[in-house]
Design a protein around this nucleic acid. Structure first.
Lengths: 343, 343
DNA sequence: ATCATATATTTACGCGCGTAAATTATTAAT
DNA sequence: ATTAATAATTTACGCGCGTAAATATATGAT
């Protein structure tokens, strides 16, 4: 076990007795070298745990196996979950995923794309910040790198968009709420920071009108990504006012709902379907946490799995055909009602 | 505005009329060039938005301004928060932070360190997975790169350790609980995955014995990082059994407590300090979410700020002196009791 | 054994940048 | 104006790897 430090591919070529270009070829595609050669390389690999320098690799390469995945917020469990899903597809297809979070910051989002450029990705899966995004620079990026948008759309940017059908999913829960009790008011931020908020607002309004009810928007103040805090603070105020025309509140997303549930609890307003309950609260997204709220949160889950799968597959076919999409396709998946305790 | 694409430093040197080595020097330290030169460069920079290739930069460099930050789990809000704190200090000191999460996976943790190696970091701030960590390979890394451990200790690895005094913080809350009601049982995973769990268990036992009470450990099954789910599932079982010798439960961390609170709620067992409450539940860490549980979670907060600051400063002084620490220092900060509604 | 074919090696250059040494230009002080 | 100090430029090489072309070797079929 002569473990003299292997510092680069040249060193490894020496100890394995094979030329560097062949080693390079092996790492690019293990099956592109003769079987006997491959075995010799792998035997050497087992003794000296050499690994090519990832960044040097990408420096002078035509095609790479790198796929960038960019999400709006790393520590939001909703995005973390969908990113994990996408990542698995990318790995399964033999690509190397690089996941980056934009921390709610449009500049960070552009910086992420610029950083991805440096490793010459074969393609990128981008869940943009949405309205806040610097769509011009994102479009410029998409012109150079095959990019598929998911979760949030930016019109005419990227080769395709895959997301949820907010019209359907909001319609679903509005219909459910109307059918089982009073029609819901819609709780949201006046100037929402998260991507699909405006779509959901409009979907709510239309859905209410369709079933002959008057929409009621509760638009609260607040900025940034601390949605629970906003839901709690503004929710406390709204609930304490007791000026709501309904006992049912549909929140634009689960994180607002979580804050609102906490507010209701502290005001001693029992939430749920029980006899003594004075309030029903519903959310949207099936946030990982919504299983543990008190009461558990009735919500509508996005079809993570399908969105992740379709996004990845769309990108792969773009990469394989090595050409841009003729037309920009939009795919929307249906949400699924998740009935729990809160409504 | 002749925006012919600037592809590299050579191109930028041409359009700015300054030699490439000088440009390189400028990017390395803007004050190292003459003021008039600097202004010419910055004028050109404003017109052509060139930015040096980060990875090529680090390829043949002696010293870099990169500082790696590695945390056990990216999407755990607790770690996300402390990482954000550390990151700010790193930026303020003029370094460039690179944050990586190990996703609870020891191999990923090693891979993160290996990836950091490639960008030749000036130093690394590492919050290790703890017991699960491949401490041998981490030690090997620390031998090459100045590394400061925080949050979780690995004996004799790294130049220093900065964390919380679990003995103190657990003692604090045990004392509080004992003083204000029945002495607590300790709710934890039999084989804990998170770093400080064993320290906390021992601290609990000692603290109970010190105040003359018999410790009672509730050690539940479960693996992985889905603590809320474990807290809920096992908590439901434990609470339904009604075999607890006490009405007070101290959880090893807030995430377990969140699951347990949910279990109690669903079993109709009111938690808190009210007359009709049959249970008190407390946690540890002051998880960002513990403000929104029902009832809000009484816990003990770690001194994020101080830990982040001291960790960063320790690393900076190591980097500046360009030498290893004579002795491995350990700094522990006190926790602070956060009294809320649950206990 | 002979030959065509597949595979490996050699050689040489490129990626985008850091860095060192020698040279030249600029600045500030005399 | 002269000089010494400072800063910029030129030149040249290196980092760790990809890649292409020419050459050499191994393989398998005849």
């Amino acid at each position: 076990m002569s473990d003299s430090k292997i510092r680069n591919m040249d060193d490894f070529a020496s100890v394995s007795g094979i030329s560097r270009p062949t080693i390079s070829k092996y790492f690019n595609d293990a099956d592109s070298v003769r079987k006997s050669t491959r075995e010799r390389i792998e035997k050497a690999l087992a003794r000296y745990d050499y690994q090519p320098n990832f960044y040097a690799m990408n420096q002078n390469r035509r095609l790479t196996k790198n796929v960038g995945i960019v999400i709006p917020y790393m520590s939001d469990p909703f995005f973390a979950e969908i990113a994990r899903n996408v990542e698995n597809h990318v790995i399964a297809a033999g690509f190397r995923p690089i996941v980056l979070g934009s921390q709610g910051n449009p500049e960070q989002e552009i910086e992420n794309l610029n950083n991805l450029r440096l490793i010459k990705p074969a393609g990128v899966l981008l869940a943009p910040l949405g309205r806040m995004s610097d769509s011009e620079r994102i479009a410029a990026f998409c012109a150079d790198v095959p990019t598929v948008l998911f979760d949030a759309n930016i019109e005419n940017v990227g080769e395709a968009f895959i997301g949820s059908d907010n019209e359907q999913s909001i319609g679903l829960i509005v219909e459910y709420l109307c059918r089982t009790g009073e029609p819901p008011a819609f709780f949201e931020m006046r100037k929402p920071t998260n991507p699909n908020a405006l779509k959901r607002r409009n979907a709510y309004v239309r859905s209410m009108e369709r079933s002959g009810h008057k929409p009621h928007l509760i638009q609260v103040e607040g900025e940034g990504w601390d949605f629970e805090e906003i839901g709690f603070r503004e929710g406390s105020r709204v609930l304490a006012d007791r000026t709501l025309p309904t006992d049912t509140i549909l929140c634009s997303n689960d994180r607002l709902a979580i804050g609102l549930l906490s507010a209701a609890y502290q005001l001693g307003m029992p939430v749920g379907l029980g006899e003594n309950c004075t309030l029903r609260i519903a959310g949207h997204d099936d946030h990982p946490f919504s299983r543990y709220t008190c009461p558990t949160l009735t919500t509508v889950s996005q079809d993570y799995t399908s969105i992740a799968k379709k996004s990845a597959e769309t990108l792969f076919s773009l990469i394989e055909t090595e050409q841009r999409a003729q037309s920009r396709e939009t795919t929307l998946f249906d949400g699924r009602l998740v009935m729990r305790g809160s409504a």
